[in-house]
Nucleic acid binder design. Structure first.
Lengths: 338, 338
DNA sequence: TCGAGGCATGTCATCGTTGTCATTGGAACA
DNA sequence: TGTTCCAATGACAACGATGACATGCCTCGA
């Protein structure tokens, strides 16, 4: 660096300091190009106390919903010149806290968190680290959440099924300790109330931590004296378990509505009706929201949750009529099929 | 830090320096616990010249195959105490090079790359940065690749179809500039040769950069004078395009074999026969391979590609017989369906 | 012509950690 | 008891960048 022209005025050039003569700046830039010089992020981070990186904490990137969420976050932030650090919490709240703390330690400019529970970061001392929660409402001083209208969408989902004549509707979900899940249950209950349907706890399965639990839940639901004629799954991962389970037990005549669209949904028989709370949009808006907070002048940022619109994609499975009351299992096979 | 007991002997404790008295070590550890002290990664990285982080470069994390590959890499490395930096190249080789260079700049302990082409890193000066290529063979001095037996698996796939009587088999793929794709083409051609089938360039579509190109390719294939009776897609993403396309044009009577398994494959009608080159396993082994190279004593590491075993999952679509020769498009609808 | 003022640039210290070398104190040996 | 030696610890510089401050020079006005 010293070879070409000036000494550590180079720093000023890098930081766009206006007090550098245009000629000098040009010379320095030329020299940097020639030497293929790149500033050292570690040194910069150490001295300046900030780093052009953003930490992202999610449950697990393997999940299709999460993958697409993360993809859009990464794409946006990386275009903005940030290095993206992604770590999975594997649904362990203490791990989630530790990861966020580590991100702060690493001087991340900000973090985007898909929280395991509202108060997962409670009591953490993060200084003025900008925090944006995504897909699930989180609580943290000064933070902002980017979510879907879980209550409203679940209510619409429930109403969609009741409007097709269903009165025994089961809901398959993970634990209600997850805020999003709780809201979806609430919306579902509201829809049932709207339709004058009595709440039946037998039809509520909030014990499906992942798709591997779904098979048993489905079996048990159909073993009930009055089995459901319709099902709702509260997240994409569980839908990916429900569909094969219905096929396996030959009960694809059951109406099914998926929370979260997924690949192949339209090619299945029946094609799957889904609430599309676009992970792509969610991620994009979360990234934008964080970027806005990283702007130098960002002071009066809102902390109100941002609700990203979503819609119902009608494809068939959600519009199946209630199966005629019968105890004959052969009715599971649609008439006309060979 | 100075408050409790000793001064910067703490560094020795952190680095497990044997020349620290057990009693002192205990006191320091206690003090660190009490003060919730955590070493600063930036300072450490700056001074020590290495960082407990690993860079991962993939095409795009949104892809289901990639997501699951990355998930297992992340899981393994993060358990080993490494911070994982994930960046997508979006299939841009120059971007890929820049990302890897940036990783080196950041003093990553090593990188895992899903290369856009064999020689994508050619000429890059990375010092002794350990490089592991995954899913695709890459070339770089001292690197190692963790891949599937693309040639062999594609050959098996082709033979599977010919053994069911097909002689007009189309292959749908992305560009053959991707090494993996090229190998799969080669295996496919070999299978055709094995079966004494003349190569027909009309049946080779290597212009499907992503699923959005598939629809047109399928249309054109079926518009041929002698349309194919069977199809192979060379990657998961394209399969996700082929299946809906076949449903759309009502040609699900076409035999189909997917390279790469995917969710819902078994619930489709027909269920999809697939080569399962487990991304989970691939990722895990790539991570292990890199970790082995990060061991202090790792000198004589092999640079031979590691081939991860995979298998054919028979589900139905790949075993459909050739459609009887007819020009009547209504034959596309299986007899007996309404 | 001289001084004030501002622009352009340089000097120095510093971020938190670790490598190198110096220092201390006590045990072991002659 | 004196000397040697080693184990345990401390002092100091340095990694590469930047913030605070100092300096030099040129312009402009009196």
């Amino acid at each position: 660096m010293m070879a070409e022209v000036s000494i550590k005025t180079a720093s000023r050039v890098l930081n766009n300091d206006p007090s550098v003569a245009p000629a000098t700046r040009a010379k320095v830039l030329e020299a940097m190009r020639e030497l293929d010089y790149r500033p050292d992020p570690a040194a910069r981070s150490l001295r300046a106390g900030r780093d052009r990186s953003v930490g992202v904490v999610v449950e697990g990137i393997g999940d299709v919903f999460v993958a697409s969420l993360v993809a859009s976050i990464e794409s946006r932030l990386s275009d903005a010149g940030y290095q993206v650090l992604i770590t999975s919490s594997h649904r362990d709240v203490s791990r989630e806290r530790a990861i966020v703390q580590d991100f702060q330690q690493r001087r991340c400019a900000g973090v985007i968190v898909m929280p395991g529970s509202e108060n997962s970061l409670e009591g953490l001392r993060l200084g003025d680290l900008p925090v944006v929660f995504v897909d699930r409402v989180g609580e943290f001083p000064g933070s902002q959440s980017v979510v879907s209208d879980d209550f409203g969408l679940a209510r619409i989902a429930g109403q969609h099924l009741t409007s097709h004549g269903h009165r025994r509707i089961a809901i398959v979900s993970d634990s209600q300790s997850v805020p999003t899940t709780r809201d979806r249950h609430a919306g579902f209950r509201q829809a049932m109330a709207d339709g004058g349907i009595t709440f039946d706890p037998d039809l509520v399965r909030d014990d499906c931590l992942d798709e591997s639990y779904v098979r048993d839940a489905i079996d048990q639901l159909f073993a009930l004296e009055h089995p459901p004629t319709a099902l709702i799954a509260t997240n994409t991962r569980l839908s990916l378990g429900v569909v094969p389970a219905l096929h396996l037990v030959g009960r694809t005549d059951t109406a099914f509505l998926a929370f979260g669209d997924f690949p192949m949904a339209e090619s299945l028989t029946p094609a799957i009706t889904a609430i599309d709370h676009s992970p792509h949009r969610l991620g994009q808006i979360a990234a934008e929201t964080l970027l806005a907070r990283l702007e130098p002048g960002a002071i009066d940022v809102s902390t109100e949750p941002i609700v990203v619109p979503a819609g119902l994609i009608v494809r068939g499975s959600g519009e199946l009529p209630p199966r005629p009351t019968t105890q004959n299992p052969s009715a599971a096979i649609p008439a006309g099929a060979t």
